[in-house]
């Protein structure tokens, strides 16, 4: 289990690094899928198989497909990749890298030994489901409204001006 965790953690970190440095959107997306799948494995090693399944299905599956779909639609070709490489001069990276490292340093310094040992045991889909439709019932309802808001917003933004007759 520990070995699986370590391997998937390394994969996740490296894949993520490639996501933010890739010059082609499609490549970045594939790396992102890899990273998400690796995190799904991490979930599994943490004793959360339901979360792992969701991560693989919804995140790496559905959401990323949406991304790929849009990237395809925009048809970003070689010129876009060239421009990306141009934009990624070392100068561009200096500031963000400093900020990110500072934050990472803070996080690591303050979180070292912050957690206790896992109380062990797997938390399966049953427990999650019981919680979702018990105390978190209102959260489910709220989530439905969130998705409705996203739907309405995306629909309105996606409409092109003037094409739809307004009555």
């Amino acid at each position: 289990m520990a070995a699986a965790f370590i391997i998937s953690a390394i994969v996740a970190a490296l894949a993520t690094l490639r996501v933010i440095t890739a010059s082609r959107a499609v490549h970045a997306l594939l790396y992102l899928v890899v990273s998400l799948l690796a995190v799904a494995v991490v979930f599994y090693t943490l004793g959360a198989p339901f979360a792992a399944a969701l991560e693989a299905l919804v995140y790496a599956g559905a959401i990323m497909v949406l991304f790929i779909f849009v990237v395809m639609m925009m048809n970003l070709g070689e010129p876009a990749a060239r421009r990306e490489r141009q934009w990624m001069a070392p100068r561009t990276w200096a500031g963000p890298a400093v900020l990110a490292l500072a934050l990472l340093a803070e996080l690591l310094a303050l979180l070292w030994r912050a957690t206790g040992p896992a109380s062990g045991g797997e938390v399966g889909p049953g427990a999650v489901g019981a919680l979702l439709f018990g105390p978190y019932l209102l959260a489910v309802e709220l989530a439905s409204l969130l998705l409705l808001a996203a739907l309405v917003t995306a629909h309105h933004l996606g409409r092109s001006a003037g094409k739809e007759p307004d009555r």
Binding site: M88, A97, L103
Partner: peptide
């Protein structure tokens, strides 16, 4: 932090 760096740099 990798994500953060990505937002700031890209």
């Amino acid at each position: 932090t990798l994500g953060l760096a990505g937002v700031l740099a890209r």
